[in-house]
């Protein structure tokens, strides 16, 4: 069953045309990788889905409902979570508060926090510290924990491994794999082996358009089919 349907969206920043007719669909409990060079519109695709940067043309449909005209908070409340690029955790809030804020009601927050600490035991020690004092890897863990705490049906994950040490990348990959068991993931990832490993299907973006897609089983990271569009 199709969970998310992006159809022929055109998105602009001011006058710059960023997405030139992107279409993709995500089925429930799938993991989709969105790959492509820097600046081809991957992040913009996620922002378009969330209506942070609404498309001028085309439609985004979530569980059969057209999202056009909805505010971002309304989109989020329909079950779409976002783990943005560069994490964007609240550096002046405590670790625990960073998780709590993602839970709609205070009553469920304790359970969500307990859950998060089970998944990311490292975080528990720092529960009362300002999140800004954490290391980059820990901040990424926190961002994942915050994203998962919302119990969303679809999670948009943007560059989770960017700028992290290899050991931590592995931990992030484990966490994502665990998350994939419970929810649907749309993953933007530069680390191609990681992306292909996690994902069931992929979409390849170039210059604001989808130029290739398919099952991740069909391709390997070294394939000319992908490399052509990925190497700078």
């Amino acid at each position: 069953m199709t969970l998310l349907d992006v159809e022929n969206v055109h998105t602009y920043y001011g006058e710059s045309h960023i997405l030139e007719g992107v279409s993709l669909s995500v089925a429930a409990s799938e993991v989709i990788a969105l790959i492509g060079r820097n600046g081809v519109g991957k992040t913009t695709t996620l922002r378009t889905i969330l209506q942070l940067t609404p498309p001028r043309e085309g439609s985004v449909t979530f569980r059969g409902e057209d999202l056009q005209g909805l505010a971002t908070n309304e989109v989020a409340r329909r079950g779409i979570g976002w783990i943005p690029e560069e994490r964007r955790i609240y550096s002046q809030l405590s670790v625990a508060e960073n998780v709590r804020i993602a839970v709609p009601s205070d009553r469920d927050a304790d359970a969500a926090l307990k859950n998060a600490y089970e998944t990311f035991p490292d975080l528990e020690r720092f529960g009362d510290r300002d999140a800004g004092t954490l290391s980059g890897g820990q901040q990424q863990m926190l961002a994942l924990a915050r994203g998962l705490a919302g119990e969303n049906d679809l999670l948009l994950v943007d560059e989770p491994s960017e700028g992290l040490a290899p050991r931590i990348v592995a931990a992030v990959a484990d966490a994502l794999a665990a998350a994939a068991e419970e929810t649907t993931l749309l993953l933007v990832e530069q680390n191609l082996p990681l992306a292909l490993d996690l994902a069931d299907r992929f979409y390849l973006l170039d210059n604001g358009q989808v130029i290739d897609s398919g099952d991740t089983d069909e391709v390997r990271a070294e394939d000319e089919r992908l490399r052509r569009h990925l190497s700078a």
């Binding site: 920043y13 710059s16 600046g39 940067t53």
Partner: peptide, 15 residues
Amino acid sequence: EGGAGAEPSADTRAE
């Protein structure tokens, strides 16, 4: 300047 066209600030610059 590079494919950084996806950055929101890029168009402000251009404009």
